[in-house]
Amino acid sequence: MTNLRITEHPILDIPADTKQVHVYFEGKELLAREGETVASALTSYGIRAFRTTRKRHEPRGVFCAIGRCTDCMMTIDGRKNVRTCMTEVKEGMQIERG
């Protein structure tokens, strides 16, 4: 999976030494940054489809990114319907679609 993380920015100060957190997306290990959301970690790897809708079978992912729209919900550590844009990554976290 490609890494879309921005390492240099003309205005924002991006610290290079943020602690890495290991999370697992459908069993596959991803490297996330401490303090970021699950949605952010998945997006950095180019994963945009977080779930598929029940009726029209269409992909959904980040939409509002502020915890309002519930489009970005995934199953985290066995807990269903968790808003990934509002959930901070934790070491060993298991992230599943559906």
Partner: peptide, 8 residues
């Protein structure tokens, strides 16, 4: 009536 209860 879905999870966001009409916010969107």
């Amino acid at each position: 009536m879905g999870p966001c209860q009409g916010m969107t």
